[in-house]
Amino acid sequence: MTKSKEKRNNPAPAIVKKALIYFFLTLWAACVLFPFYWMILSSFKDYASYNAEFIPKFFTLTPTLENYKLAFTAVPLAKYFLNSLIFTLGTSVIMLAVTVLAAFAFARLEFRGKNLVFTIFLSLMMIPNELVIITNYQTITNLELRNTFTGLILPSVASVFFIYLLKENFEQVPDELYKAAKIDGTSDLKYLFKVLVPICRPTVITVLILKVIECWNSYVWPRLITDDSAYFLVSNGIQEIRENGFGRENVPAMMAAVVVISVPLIVIFLIFRKKIMSGVSRGGTKG
């Protein structure tokens, strides 16, 4: 292609090119949004009319809340929801405490073998979860912690990556603050939670959000460790609903359950959009 030809062609197709780009992006946006649209639409359709549609309709003129009522009464959706909430909160809080303490030790305290320990920690990041889950399953079973929140929470509270992330952030805080606090007679613990954590709040929140997303979507570990539906989390709950849910296959009610499960994270995402996206680009792994 010669330069002159390129120049002659350029001005006119600029708009066409823009239009094509927008068309392409809109096409993918439609692909992303359509499943969400479909589940919301189906969840408002009446059971009888849904099954009567050989060709599914793209709208409904008689929206009903019956499916949502059914999702909360026929299956213990509220229980699943509550379990997930407890699991998510428990895991996040303990994880944060463990992580902050360890990160502080690496960032501010001097001790022999610090570099060695930190290197070992970093190398632990390479251990894949699938490899250790077998023994963890045995450990938790032997401790008779199956079908308890303790068993659900314990194995997922320590995260090397988050320790690393926080340590890097703690180190950026000027050392003088720490020394001043020491002269003041402030204890390390007080300094950590009154000064360091508030200063590093953005990173702390990022870590929290990533953990919450992970917890809300976790499926494998809860599936291994719970077989009593009183301890099912939402992911296992939805699988249970799918396999022997409403007595008969009731797609609209299933979709209502799916909507209920999906909404919390989407709301959190829309509120903390910027934080979540920057957090994921720093430390996300799904994909």
Binding site: W28, A29, V32, L33, P35, F36, W38, M39, S42, N51, E53, F54, I55, P56, I213, W216, N217, Y219, V234, S235, I238, Q239, R242, V251, M254, M255, A257, V258, I261, S262, L265, I266, I268, F269, L270, R273, I276, M277, V280, G284, K286
Partner: peptide, 29 residues
């Protein structure tokens, strides 16, 4: 924002929607 949505959804839940969209039953194609 739209493109990021699948990241924050529950894999199991939305998978169910995909299953419904793709499957073929006696009642519906």
């Amino acid at each position: 924002t739209i493109f990021f949505l699948p990241y924050v959804t529950n894999t199991l839940a939305v998978g169910l929607v995909f299953m419904i969209l793709f499957r073929k039953t006696e009642y519906s194609e």
